[in-house]
Design a binder for these strands. Structure first.
Lengths: 351, 351
DNA sequence: CGACGGTCGGAAAAGGTTTTCCCTGGCTCC
DNA sequence: GGAGCCAGGGAAAACCTTTTCCGACCGTCG
């Protein structure tokens, strides 16, 4: 209320602790003690200080505090792409947890460029007490070297065997395994897998599970694809041509692209072909048929990353590696193969 | 390379400018001059300084710089919900533009709670040179008062008549008008409008356009709904019951919810009923039928907000208000009313 | 050859806060 | 009643960088 209301632009310089001290008739030290509670102050001066603070609208200068404390009360989050709801959710998880602990969140978007990750993290780490690195695409070597240059580093969805970098990661292998089990139980024997980006750590984790799951009664056809919905749209034809009765997509996004393509082609899901995703994004519940997928609580991922961040004290104590097991949710996009299309292959093969 | 590699945890305290100066055999002033280029330094000491900087891995302490400069080189972005891809996109737009100008981005999520907006913005503004406030739900009065407490404030999707707050906003009215025109040209005369949150500024803007568009040959039935897909799912039945031949949803999200409900009920879109959204989110191109909607470049919104932020100098010069006109994209979810359902009403009405 | 100007670099202050150290005054216990 | 102790508050240092002011040195011109 009062003079500041008029937006004359001649904004008065922010009040400092010295202004408050003068106004309250005490020393700056006393003001600091009242505000931080670092040492008790008797009632009467405290009243005067509080009144002066309110009157001047004083708020301590964080730069000065940071300079003195040597800590910023901020965490940096580096993501490949904010447009991707997956990362947006993880960011939200971190931010909410951080807010709770009176920490600010800095964010950087690397635009999916692996080369930008290192610089973004390094730059952000100047302004933060540490970094949460989401699904880093950089090389293992680069990651290790980065970990030593940043005060605290926590990874999301990237575990590194050698270097001890705290991480929270989805158990992609378990997810793939549960999808494969589900499809085999439905009676599928030939599944097309729409592969993610070859360099992604999570794709490599899936590959291990795919190789384990494939066996005498389950053949898995690998189809190069990618991570976006247009990749899925593009790869759908190849999946169809492979003669598979079910398509396991790298992610929900990819699956939705494939679904759109199937729709265009008049291929019925799940009657003619089953389809699965990975991640359980919000849309997967809205398309028809609703997508069978594997569910990951992305905000929880962020929250856990924060917990790890806290655990990883600046004292060098190191957080551990947390693994989150995703859960299969069976919806409408998977069913037993009816032979509508499968029969073509089977009859052709049997004769 | 070298000792820092070993993650012993005994991280050496960060090198200061004094360490560099000692290492290079010059004064701190010279180091500063080399790094900032504020004053020329002769070749030989410059070499020594650069070598020392590289050797020690020195990076200036931003807190100290901020303290001195009185500026933080950071912008705060306050959004209602990071899970909402709309806001995530706007955030991405701001972040990318800011990164370009060597600014950091701080983010706060208010969890859709109007009461949290003020505090979040105020808190963030301590650490930033200003705030970008996305779709604030707070009252006009609160907003005006906030604008005077924050060094620079830019709004996204909220214009305020009285106070001169720079803003970039979608012209919701124009969007609604173009949808109404489209539907009328197709031959619709009775449209159900699924309303957004009553308190939202963007809903009030839409309301003005709805009232203008409604006329003798276009009746618009208002149906309370909300802003999420489950709201749309829930409100779909009422829209159907209203006897409208077309449904205009508050947003794509709402429309997708309604679409899912129509699908459950076996109501064909657009044959039996037309459906439109607003925003053109990524999914709208993936569902079937693909959604007719109005397209907004959300990242561009963020970019423009940044431009306004830059324009709004701390000198009190004030950015203007930018209006972005959305464009109609006609896809598969709208068509001329065939009478499949409409006939029920028309025959009933005509007799 | 001397004086002046220009260039380069160092010393020091400033920026706002916290915290340590110290002093003073009042209370308690002997 | 005196001495010692405790609590409360003030002065000042420290945090790290930038920038202003100033001094010194070198080169050039008169």
């Amino acid at each position: 209320m009062g003079r500041a209301q008029t937006g004359t632009g001649a904004r008065p310089p922010r009040a400092t602790i010295i202004d408050v001290a003068r106004e309250a008739g005490v020393s700056p030290a006393t003001v600091s003690r009242v505000l931080t509670g670092s040492k008790p102050v008797s009632a009467e001066p405290e009243q005067r200080v509080r009144a002066a603070v309110a009157r001047l609208g004083y708020r301590p200068n964080p730069a000065a505090q940071g300079l003195l404390r040597g800590t910023t009360s901020a965490v940096g989050v580096v993501v490949p792409d904010l447009s991707n709801p997956y990362f947006a959710e993880v960011l939200k998880g971190v931010t909410n947890a951080a807010q709770h602990a009176d920490f600010r969140t800095l964010v950087a978007d690397t635009g999916e460029k692996a080369g930008a990750e290192r610089d973004a993290a390094l730059e952000l780490s100047r302004w933060a007490d540490g970094i949460v690195l989401c699904s880093p695409r950089m090389s293992q070597w680069e990651l290790t070297e980065l970990a030593s240059a940043v005060p605290r580093l926590v990874c999301v969805n990237r575990r590194s065997r050698g270097s001890r970098i705290p991480a929270v990661a989805v158990d992609f292998g378990a997810g793939v395994a549960s999808i494969c089990r589900h499809l085999r139980e439905l009676g599928h024997h030939r599944v097309a897998y729409l592969r993610g980006p070859a360099r992604a750590w999570s794709e490599r984790a899936r590959q291990r599970a795919v190789r384990t799951a494939a066996g005498s009664d389950l053949e898995i056809v690998q189809i190069p694809c990618g991570s976006s919905s247009v990749d899925g749209h593009r790869a759908a034809d190849a999946a169809l041509a492979s003669g598979a009765t079910a398509v396991m997509a790298f992610s929900d996004y990819v699956a939705l692209g494939a679904l759109a393509r199937f729709d265009e082609l008049g291929v019925a899901v799940p009657e003619e072909i089953s389809l699965t995703g990975f991640d359980d994004i919000a849309l997967s519940r809205l398309v028809s048929p609703r997508l069978t997928t594997v569910t990951v609580d992305k905000q929880d991922l962020g929250r856990r990353a924060w917990d790890l961040f806290v655990d990883t004290g600046a004292d060098g104590r190191i957080g551990s590696v947390v693994e989150v097991t995703p859960e299969l949710v069976v919806r409408g996009s998977t069913a037993a193969p009816t032979g509508a299309r499968a029969s073509q292959r089977e009859t052709a093969g049997d004769r």
